[in-house]
Amino acid sequence: MNIFRLAGDMTHLASVLVLLLKIHTIKSCAGVSLKTQELYAIVFATRYLDIFTSFYSIYNTLMKLIFLGSSFSIVWYMRYHKTVRRTYDREQDTFRHWFLVLPCLLLALLIHEKFTFLEVLWTFSLYLEAVAILPQLVLLQRTRNIDNLTGQYVFLLGGYRGFYILNWIYRYLTEPHFVHWITWIAGLVQTLLYADFFYYYFQSWKNNKKLQLPA
């Protein structure tokens, strides 16, 4: 464990807590894409299949449980909670996210480190996570008024993978044989997808005005 990875995990944790806080306290998921939340639930479900078979540390297992629990409960809130589900703007959240799942699965079947069931699904979860934010970014462009919590959620979610990139650089420099091109490229693509969001987020923060993404 290094400071970059810890910062990344804490930023990721903060992002899901911000979202859960928003949904649980104000009972609203306005501006949040259910498609992205469903994709993230699939990402964690396929990423952490080894939660029962391999144990690394209490921290590792605890964080996996938190990410699994939070992503599935957010999906549950947005789909089934009587108050929250009414605030979900179904008409705007129309990204065909299943069109993201299949290519990622095919790619994982083609490009992976080892051709085993767990490894292919784990690689699939990496590819899917890289694009999981797309429905949310599309939704943000459509809903003009981005409330602070949703903006913070996306910002933290984008930032965590940025910290992971620093972690990979650090581990590459300090650990022999630590080379994982698939993880690195997927993580880089993921972070780059946030580039324009980050730009407009900083602009709104610097000029102290509402976050508005260009249509």
């Binding site: 995990d9 990423r47 590792n60 044989h177 630590f178 080379v179 994982h180 993880t183």
Partner: peptide
């Protein structure tokens, strides 16, 4: 198995 090392990440 080098890939196992990577699995200690979330």
């Amino acid at each position: 198995r080098p890939s196992a090392i990577n699995k200690d990440e979330l």
